[in-house]
Nucleic acid binder design. Structure first.
Length: 739
DNA sequence: CTCGGCAGAATTTTT
DNA sequence: TTCTGCCGAG
């Protein structure tokens, strides 16, 4: 494999391309943006509110560094979170300074850059160059296996939750030996650490890294091989980071280590858009920037070029209710007030979907393209009601944020074949496809092979071959397995000579995998065949299987290529960074948004993050925003009554206009702000009770399904309850009402 | 080994 | 309501 950072120090620098001069670049910016670009030396925090030209600053700054000859392209490191952001930045920089210079600048996501460093120097910490990158699904399988091996009761400690604990540790840069008294150390009766250690052991055995490792192992590399770190520090004279508010501790340390040489670190972010703390993002990174980097300069971008006045004023007033923020106020660039934020109350969730879709159609008649309209929901399941309504009305739409290309089952299967071919130690890949399509190799056989593999400390493919030779297996299993191993050997031979595409083509046809989907009568089967074709087509660009596997794991995205004008439906999280002429923000009801569970688990911090989410939602809108709430909706087949979201009280009256369905009007429109807990209906004595009562041991409660019972134990929002009829159960408090 | 039926649970997810 | 994961029968 070629050196992933091929252009190194000492290369004869080509002259900077003819492009705009530094002064010309600055001329296109407002004073605060220019300040951010001009401040090239030292640590800089650019606090960039929604719609204030963050990407413009980043790209212009990169161009400025090159045009002013501050550094060569490969001496500037730019880091983003998403591939989308990386791509966009590369394109925009290319447009300013030309493709050539743009393509030799080092730009990528944290994970892709980490992977490159590890491919190059990971051997210094015992990581082979050809390690595979595991995704969420593989990680979960691994945790399950490890849990089973450690006799963990998976009912009490679900693998999902254990994995989350492990990931939080990795996010914080904490290895198995450094856990100590870290949060989560007590999880699973204190056995989470042992699981973590075993899990890392398994990764090593499999020759694999998970996403977290791509950063964590870089930190280890920097510690263990100071010369490697020093060479990166020398090389990267300027570092720029996007979405700094979303960085976790490990990423913060990574940046800090790399920027230590030059001290030139420019972080761009917005604490008011920090919405990923539950995933390990550390808002503290941005809040404490000036402490972490003494002497750092802070530049605030507060001129908003996106939204009209009322929308901006409403959003600003809302976010001002948060205590935990650096504080900035967005000012509209244009003096236009535009339309007030519309707040609409309806009776039911179905009504809400109907009203929203009607409004969208009205906009469409006013010549607003559907692509400029979005419905932004709090939780994924809310999209359904809108999809149904949109479908019924024949309005073209798209749901953004479904499974990524790589996460699709058929793609992961195909990739598992390739992984197993290129990396015989990849037992996870082996287990995934050994009986897919059906080859008569069932769980029992696989279990035997796994045990043998563990016992003799070899990969499962090797163990399988040995067991066949030794005649250790039932005849049927033995023939089936032998046949599969033969196929595998053939593919390995082919892999040595043929290009990746030919190889995969042969695998998919020869294994019968493609045939399996062709024969499948499920409605989504043809789509899967299409996806596999797309995967094949994508392989043409790669001469090296290794390279392709990395691309698929880290970068490859869904082919969106449709030109149809469609309305977008997505979660608020997925909407960050996007903008639309008009956004609909349904489901603003206490319990749903702010989400009850977030409140239960994280209290005020949770509430503030929910409010930031609301702020993100509002600031996506250029010209129109419509907030709505339903008095009652069916959730999981149960009717629930809800109160309007407390966030609606955070919207100032002078910037909103209230509408309500007949019969609802009085109570809602005239609702005094102080009566924020007054329900529109008398709530029934069910799980819908809004305020979370403080549950105590011995208390009598009622559950819709299990009836009456008595609380035996309280664990956060989970209650252990002895039901009179149904016996001892663990349930979430939200499904419980006081009896 | 495979398939069908039932119990049990149910945010957000850039890599 | 809808999905997943487990268990027992063929």
């Amino acid at each position: 494999m070629t050196d992933p950072f091929a252009l190194d120090d000492g290369f004869a620098p080509p002259p900077p391309p003819a492009g705009p001069s530094p002064d010309q670049l600055l001329a296109g910016l407002n004073p605060e943006q220019a300040e951010a670009v001009r401040t090239t030396e030292g640590a800089v925090l650019v606090l960039s509110g929604a719609g204030t030209g963050k990407t413009k600053v980043l790209t212009t700054r990169l161009a400025y560094l090159l045009a002013g000859n501050f550094a060569q392209p490969w001496q500037i490191l730019s880091v983003t979170f998403t591939n989308r952001a990386a791509r966009e930045m590369r394109e925009r920089v290319g447009a300013i300074i030309g493709e050539a210079a743009a393509s030799s600048t080092v730009l990528g996501t944290f994970h892709a850059l980490g992977a490159r460093m590890l491919r190059r120097d990971g051997t210094r910490i015992g990581l082979p160059r050809d390690f595979t990158i595991l995704d969420a699904d593989d990680q979960l399988r691994l945790v399950k296996q490890v849990s089973a091996g450690q006799d963990i009761d998976t009912k009490r400690w679900p693998p999902q939750a254990l994995l989350a604990v492990l990931q939080r540790w990795k996010d914080r840069g904490v290895g198995p030996d450094q856990v100590g008294a870290d949060p989560g150390a007590e999880y699973a009766g204190g056995r989470a650490v042992a699981i973590y250690r075993a899990y890392q052991g398994e990764l090593a055995r499999l020759n694999a890294c998970d996403f977290g490792d791509l950063l964590l192992k870089c930190l280890e590399l920097f510690r263990e091989a100071p010369d490697v770190l020093a060479s990166y520090q020398r090389r990267f004279r300027y570092i720029m980071v996007d979405e700094y508010q979303d960085t976790n501790v490990a990423q913060g340390l990574w940046l800090r280590a790399l920027s230590k040489g030059s001290g030139n670190l420019c972080c761009v972010g917005d604490d008011d858009q920090s919405i990923y703390s539950w995933r390990g993002a550390e808002v503290g990174n941005i809040l404490r920037f000036t402490e972490d980097f003494p002497g750092a300069k802070v530049v605030r971008l507060e001129t908003n070029y996106r939204s009209t006045g009322h929308i901006l004023a409403a959003a600003a007033h809302l976010i001002a209710q948060n205590a935990d923020r650096l504080g900035k106020t967005l000012r509209p660039a244009s003096g236009e007030w535009g339309e007030k934020v519309c707040v609409r109350g309806v009776w039911t969730g179905e009504d809400e979907a109907r009203v929203v879709v009607e409004a969208a159609e009205t906009l469409q008649r006013k010549k607003v393209p559907l692509a400029e309209i979005a419905v932004l929901v709090r939780a994924g399941y809310q999209t359904r009601a809108f999809e149904e309504r949109l479908m019924a009305q024949g309005v073209p739409y798209r749901v953004v944020g479904g499974p990524r290309f790589y996460e699709r089952q058929e793609i992961r299967d195909a990739v598992a074949y390739l992984r197993l071919i290129s990396q015989p130690a990849d037992d996870l890949a082996f287990e995934r496809i050994v009986n897919l399509p059906r080859r008569g190799i069932g769980d029992a056989t696989v279990d035997l092979v796994r045990q043998e593999a563990r016992a003799t400390n070899v990969p499962m493919t090797v163990a399988a071959a040995e067991m066949i030779a030794a005649g250790d297996l039932p005849t049927r299993a033995r023939t089936c397995l032998a046949k599969f191993l033969e196929e595998l050997a053939d593919w390995r031979t082919l892999a040595a000579g043929a290009d990746p595409r030919t190889l995969l083509d042969d695998v998919l046809e020869g294994s019968g995998y493609l045939e399996m989907w062709r024969r499948d009568k499920a409605p989504d089967a043809p789509g899967r065949v299409e996806n596999l074709k797309e995967l094949l087509a994508a392989m043409d660009e790669f001469g090296d299987l290794q390279e392709f596997l990395e691309y698929v794991a880290l970068v490859m995205e869904n082919q969106s290529g449709d030109e149809v004008d469609r309305l977008s439906v997505m979660t608020l999280h997925a909407a960050k960074g996007l903008e639309f002429d008009h956004v609909f923000l349904p489901g603003w009801e206490d319990g749903l948004f702010p989400n009850q569970r977030s409140l239960d688990e994280s209290g005020t911090k949770g509430l503030e993050e929910e409010r930031r989410l609301a702020h993100v939602g509002l600031t996506r809108a250029r010209k129109g925003a419509t907030v709505s709430f339903a008095a009652a909706r069916r959730i999981y087949g149960q009717w629930q009554n809800n109160m309007p979201s407390r966030f609606i009280d955070d919207l100032p009256d002078e910037h909103i206009e209230r509408f309500s369905e007949a019969g609802m009007g009085g109570g809602v429109a005239a609702r005094p702000a102080s009566l924020e807990t007054r329900p529109m209906f008398e709530p029934r004595a069910t799980a819908a009770m809004a305020d979370e009562p403080g549950y105590k041991r011995g208390q009598r409660v009622f559950h819709d399904k299990f009836g009456y019972g008595e609380i035996r134990a309280v664990d956060g929002n989970k209650l252990e309850i002895a039901f009179d009829k149904a016996g001892l159960k663990k349930v979430l408090s939200r499904f419980i009402a006081a009896a």
